[in-house]
């Protein structure tokens, strides 16, 4: 109850001009009209909200859903989430900017995260990243990023393609990798983590290059 009252108090504070025009100039209000929310997005966010004792817990899944729809957490996407969740866009923008997987700038449709953390780097990840980055070039379909440890050092060096882990990779794999993405085939089907056995020690055997970590230009 008191929360709602406070929200009302707050809403009124914004509507009414507290500050007498005679003594103070206020900055013009922007975007007072709540944005239209696509019904399927609203529905998905509300489904997440219903799962938690405190609906705010749905912020990450909600932002992820908005990102799937809009391609990134654009101001528009954030305002839509804010409208459904009853939070301020500022709050959600702050949350979004905290997490690596929530994009606050427009990006390509396909995420290619190349792990460049220590274990992968020890096995040539920096060179791999450069190869992917160069091969993808300025193709707007790709979001190629060097990424922190993705938790698959057993297949180092590796990459996550829209969530599918593939490795160990060499620069030679890169053309096929991008081609698979472009054509919609399963990405490097023979190199997917999902096919790998844990208890087969030989499955882990691989040759790897003898070279130090190479720092890639940021």
């Amino acid at each position: 109850m008191s929360d709602r009252v406070h929200q009302q108090i707050h809403a009124r504070a914004r509507e009414e001009s507290l500050l007498n025009a005679r003594v103070c100039v206020r900055t013009p209000k922007t975007n007072a009209i709540p944005p239209e929310v696509p019904p399927e997005l609203r529905e998905e966010i509300e489904r997440h909200m219903a799962l938690y004792p405190d609906t705010r817990s749905a912020a990450l899944p909600a932002l992820a859903a908005a990102q799937r729809l809009h391609g990134w957490c654009s101001p528009e996407a954030i305002e839509q989430v804010a409208t459904v969740m009853g939070l301020t866009p500022a709050y959600l923008a702050a949350v979004a900017s905290f997490y690596d997987m929530l994009e606050t700038e427009s990006i390509g449709r396909h995420d290619v995260y190349v792990c460049t953390n220590i274990s992968c780097s020890l096995r040539g990840a920096d060179r791999l990243y450069e190869a992917v980055r160069d091969a993808a070039g300025d193709d707007p379909d790709f979001n190629v990023r060097p990424f922190e440890c993705l938790g698959a050092c057993d297949i180092a060096p590796m990459a996550s393609v829209d969530g599918v882990y593939v490795g160990p990779l060499t620069p030679d794999d890169v053309p096929r990798l991008l081609d698979d993405i472009r054509t919609g085939r399963p990405v490097l089907a023979d190199k997917q983590l999902a096919t790998r056995l844990v208890a087969d020690p030989n499955a882990n055997s691989q040759a790897f290059p003898a070279h130090p970590i190479e720092e890639s230009a940021p």
């Binding site: 922007t30 101001p75 301020t88 866009p89 500022a90 923008a93 702050a94 900017s97 905290f98």
Partner: peptide
């Protein structure tokens, strides 16, 4: 009012409002 927030993380973090709007 939840209008003033921290953007980004770590050494990159800074104080901001949503989309550069005035803190009103």
């Amino acid at each position: 009012d939840y209008e003033l927030v921290i953007q980004e993380r770590g050494a990159h973090s800074y104080i901001a409002t949503f989309d550069g709007r005035p803190y009103d």
